[in-house]
């Protein structure tokens, strides 16, 4: 689905991503782990062109991406969930979800509402449809954000540390929703510090450090038998 070749990203003189090459297949769940500042989030944000790579190529569905042309189309197919939820505070939960499908996909209001209610039921928040985001807990907001992304019927979802801003007891509900999506076959790229989730749900785990992909492989390999010294050190610290 995605193939990256020699992707690099610089912010001024700061090289955040150095020669990243990798791929993501349809239906795959890829978890990206690594210390803070390793470039994980930047890498994820390059996939939907929120950051424009300094050099390198991105292939999406077999065709090379042109950041000037393909932004909107790509983003309609590749949804994203943020660390800080970023729900629209002036809209209630229902409108947060129906807004983009109605505006962009020209969905009829009743269809969009029906879809939104289905998605809210799926994330366990059907009773919160008329609340405003500020009245919800972080975990609830994040589940609404997932529903909002799903409402665009994306082919893939990017998760940028979706549970890092949550109180520990609220993390579980969000991970549960993500697990369910994974079992339904959604293609997902997840930047996370939740090693348990990565181990259980990921098809492939990528360990990044200092802008490089240091090691990648199945969760068993990365967590039980890492080859690289830096991977070992990192895992020893977080687990």
């Amino acid at each position: 689905m995605f193939r990256l070749v020699n992707l690099e990203k610089k912010f001024g003189n700061l090289e955040v991503l150095k020669s990243i090459s990798m791929f993501i297949d349809y239906g795959e769940v890829v978890c990206i782990i690594g210390p803070s500042g390793s470039g994980k989030s930047t890498f994820l944000r390059c996939l939907n062109l929120l950051e424009i790579p300094t050099s390198g190529r991105i292939y999406y569905s077999g065709a090379i991406l042109d950041p000037d042309l393909d932004c909107k189309k790509l983003r309609r197919e590749v949804g994203m969930v943020f660390q800080k939820f970023n729900l629209f505070p002036m809209f209630n939960v229902l409108k947060n979800i129906t807004y983009a499908p109605m505006r962009i996909n020209k969905m009829k209001e009743e269809d969009a509402k029906e879809l939104a209610m289905d998605l809210l039921a799926k994330v366990g928040l059907a009773d919160k449809a008329n609340e405003y985001p500020s009245k919800l807990s972080g975990g609830q907001q994040q589940r609404v954000a997932i529903a909002r992304a799903l409402a665009m019927k994306p082919k893939m979802l990017l998760f940028d540390e979706p549970t890092s801003a949550l109180d520990p007891e609220l993390v579980g509900d969000v991970l549960e929703v993500m697990k369910q999506l994974a079992t339904e076959g959604m293609t997902m790229a997840v930047v996370t510090h939740e090693m348990g989730f990565a181990r259980e749900v990921a098809d492939r785990v990528i360990f990044m450090d200092k802008g490089y992909i240091v090691e990648e492989g199945t969760p068993e390999k990365i967590f039980s038998n890492p080859e690289n010294q830096r991977t070992k050190e990192f895992l020893a610290r977080v687990i």
Binding site: L50, K72, K84, N86, F88, I104
Partner: peptide, 12 residues
């Protein structure tokens, strides 16, 4: 994040 949230949904 508000702008980004709109952008990733496909808004210009």
């Amino acid at each position: 994040g508000q702008t980004e949230a709109a952008l990733v949904l496909g808004f210009g």
